[in-house]
Structure formats: structure tokens, C-alpha cells
């Protein structure tokens, strides 16, 4: 898919190093293959709307940025619930597809499933192309 991934927390780069070496490397051989950034003081998290001032940490926020450097998607969760990486991958593939083709991807789209080509011909006719069960 050709995606650059960056992980950010308010921890220091020293903490990142030990976490990678002592724990992450036991989950993923060689450790996670992306940079761990130190957002000391939540300066960047504030701009992205994910810094929790009361706790002093960046909460779970995830942003997809396209090659033109525009934000395409964001998802923000309070810390107790982890993310769904399959959904992230699905969204990246969907955005890559629409940028490449100009088509749009209806609810529940997965790679290989039908897309829609918007235009006057489709007005009032989406029911022919897409069924509610396609959403799942």
C-alpha cells in the first residue's frame, strides 16, 4: 500500500527506545517498523485535537493524510478501547482507490467489491446498485 506510519505519544524518545526493545520486540520480531515520536507536552496533539490536558497525554487519535498533504480521515477514541487495524487498512485502500479512479466507495466497501460512479444517471437509482446487506 506504500504508507508511512508514525506513532506519537507524550513519552520521551528514551522511553520509546526501551518500550521498543523490552516489550514491542517481544510482540513483533525486530520491533514495530515505524518511528516513535515524542510529543512532549502534547504540543502536536493539541493541534490535532487529541491532547487531554487533565491527564497530560495524547488520547487515541488516528489520521490518514493523502499525498497532497490533506487529511482524509480521522478517528479519535478515549483510551480504554483499542483500534481496529483492519478498518484502517480498508479506509486507506478506499481512499487510494477513489483518488486513482474518481469512483466512490459505498458503505461497507471492501477491495474487489463494486464501487459507484456518481452522476445524474445514478440519482434515485442507488437502490439498484447497492443493498443494505452490502454495508456489512
Amino acid at each position: 500500500m506504500g504508507v508511512e506510519i508514525f506513532a506519537l505519544s507524550t513519552d520521551s524518545r528514551f522511553s520509546h527506545k526501551i518500550w521498543q526493545e523490552e516489550e514491542l520486540s517481544k510482540m513483533v520480531p525486530g520491533g514495530v517498523p515505524f518511528p516513535l515520536l515524542s510529543d512532549a507536552g502534547g504540543r502536536v496533539g493539541s493541534v490535532y485535537g487529541v491532547y487531554d490536558e487533565d491527564a497530560g497525554v495524547d488520547i487515541r487519535g488516528r489520521f490518514i493524510i493523502d499525498p497532497d498533504f490533506n487529511i482524509r480521515a480521522m478517528e479519535v477514541l478515549t483510551p480504554e478501547v483499542g483500534r481496529n487495524v483492519s478498518e484502517l487498512i480498508r479506509q486507506v485502500k478506499a481512499f487510494q482507490h477513489v483518488v486513482k479512479t474518481g469512483e466512490v466507495t459505498p458503505s461497507g466497501w471492501q477491495p474487489g467489491k463494486p464501487t459507484l460512479s456518481p452522476g445524474p444517471h445514478l440519482v434515485g437509482k442507488v437502490w439498484k446498485e447497492w443493498k443494505p446487506e452490502d454495508a456489512f
Binding site: V3, I59, R62, I64, I65, P67, Q96
Partner: peptide
């Protein structure tokens, strides 16, 4: 490039 940034607590 396509970029994903993930904040975590």
C-alpha cells in the same frame, strides 16, 4: 506519500 499518524496515551 500516503501517511498515517497514530497518537496513543
Amino acid at each position: 506519500k500516503w501517511i498515517v499518524i497514530c497518537f496513543y496515551p
